[in-house]
């Protein structure tokens, strides 16, 4: 009886996903896992999980215990936060993001998870639009409905935001933006996306390319922080 922790965590993750789809049968759970080419979870493993008081099984159906639910939520949370970080902020491809997220979900410490969550502004959803289980840090910021850090491209029109950071591909680009007053800490408003992105910084309107809009990260301004 010594199933590796990572396998149990994988099983918890998929049980959560199954439940998220409104299913409670172990059959659906196994289907979902095989669809993603995940290792087969034997009955032995499930039994061990039951012994560890993570889940309960009745008539081919499963249910989380309170502890199992909390543990699974943390795994899902780490996975989806990692997705946000790599895909949104670091522009890593979704495929590669998935690979990394699958590894990170097992190893991120509570403290790092909290930092990532705070850095991203306690996002409520993963890039696929599924909910990210809230951590304690998020509950303090419950008023947030949308991810706080996003690129200018993703920003809603006419919503004031503060520049968090700029990741320019070219140094000259940064200098130009800086001299126009586009610097971290400055407030901006996106006024249009088409036919070109136009941002307003103070009373200065500036038209920028889409790829520059991707490089300016902003934080939505809420109750005047």
């Amino acid at each position: 009886m010594s199933t590796p922790i990572s396998l149990i965590e994988e099983a918890l993750e998929y049980l959560w996903l199954t439940r998220e789809q409104g299913e409670t049968s172990l059959e659906s759970f196994r289907e979902l896992m095989s669809k993603d080419d995940q290792p087969v979870i034997t009955d032995d493993v499930l039994e061990e999980m039951e012994e560890k008081a993570l889940i309960q099984r009745t008539n081919g159906k499963f249910e989380f215990t309170a502890e199992g639910d909390a543990t699974a939520a943390q795994i899902i949370r780490r996975h989806r936060l990692a997705e946000r970080l790599f895909n949104d902020v670091l522009n890593v491809s979704m495929e590669e993001t998935e690979n990394i997220a699958c590894q990170l979900e097992h190893i991120l410490s509570a403290e790092v998870t909290k930092s990532v969550c705070t850095f991203l502004g306690h996002p409520p959803q993963c890039p696929h639009g599924r909910p990210i289980p809230q951590g304690r840090c998020c509950k303090r910021y419950k008023s947030q409905l949308k991810p706080i850090i996003s690129s200018v491209r993703q920003l809603d029109l006419r919503i004031p935001a503060r520049i968090a950071f700029i990741t320019p591909e070219f140094h000259k680009r940064y200098q130009r933006l800086t001299s126009l007053g586009v610097t971290p800490g400055t407030e901006l408003v996106l006024t249009q996306r088409h036919p070109s992105f136009v941002i307003k910084v103070g009373e200065t309107e500036i038209a920028i390319d889409g790829d520059i809009a991707d490089e300016i990260y902003v934080k939505r301004i809420t109750n005047r922080d």
């Binding site: 070219f170 126009l180 500036i206 038209a207 390319d209 520059i212």
Partner: peptide
């Protein structure tokens, strides 16, 4: 070159 253009009123 980059398209970074100030739009005067």
């Amino acid at each position: 070159s980059d398209f970074v253009l100030e739009l005067p009123p």
